[in-house]
Design a protein around this nucleic acid. Structure first.
Length: 104
DNA sequence: TACTTGACAGCAT
DNA sequence: AATGCTGCCAAGT
């Protein structure tokens, strides 16, 4: 049967939902845990398709550099940063999270 | 149906 | 450190 993609989104969201509060992860890592190793972009698509009222902690997902992937001009960018700081995640002067602090 | 875009990542310049 | 290219895979045009 044809692979219905929305099912993959659910799997990705499932993985993101497991990220503990005050912690962060990366697109690449989420992709790997969802069985989509190497397809980090697929994770971006899944989060983009995420309904605004979902309980998925999408804000805990950063790119490989530890920075927020959304455009600075984007309103979501600010929201994501606020959410993380509210959980105790610190940003350096370059607007990046110190991934090594979390064992990356 | 073919080409382009995108919440990415990793390596080469 | 910044920029560019390639690999990935679904969605949009």
């Amino acid at each position: 049967m044809t692979n219905y993609e929305p099912d993959i989104n659910h799997r990705i969201w499932q993985v993101v939902a497991l990220i503990p509060k005050g912690r962060v992860s990366t697109y690449g890592h989420v992709a790997e845990k969802a069985g989509l190793a190497g397809a980090a972009r697929r994770v971006g698509s899944a989060l983009r398709a995420l309904p605004a009222d979902s309980k998925i902690p999408w804000h805990r997902v950063l790119n490989s550099k530890g920075s927020i992937a959304l455009p600075t001009a984007s309103g979501s960018h600010q929201i994501q940063r606020d959410q993380l700081e509210a959980e105790g995640v610190l940003f350096n002067t370059k607007g990046r999270v110190d991934l090594e602090h979390f064992g990356w």
